[in-house]
Amino acid sequence: MAKRILIVEDEIVSAMALERMLADMDYQVVGIITTGEDAILEARASRPDIVVMDIRLAGVMDGIDAASKISAELAIPILFMTGYDDTETRSRAIALKPLGFMTKPIDKKKFKDILGGGSSP
């Protein structure tokens, strides 16, 4: 059974491209969400196997805050992706012991390797 992935990304075109990429890799995208608050609600509802989380999001909550709640509450692995790879952001994200931390643009092979690390379909 294909792994179910929730995409949290506020740039819809990027999210749609990622969705297509994941579909090509035989993953099932359970949804595209653009805010941290909605991501928590959707994670509770759809219980994905992995959450691919952008760090900078629309709304008040950023991706790390949302991931922190999802991890703590639902123990769902998080794969961070960001366009801003600064030390502080990376430190905050790594403190949550995520599945991975990727900078945009997404490298398909690296992405596949990370998702495949024990979580491949």
Binding site: D10, E11, I12, V13, A15, M16, I32, T34, A58
Partner: peptide, 13 residues
């Protein structure tokens, strides 16, 4: 059309 709907409804709420 998918872009119109996704941008309007998903991205821009």
């Amino acid at each position: 059309i998918r872009l119109i709907l996704k941008i309007a409804e998903t991205q821009l709420k």
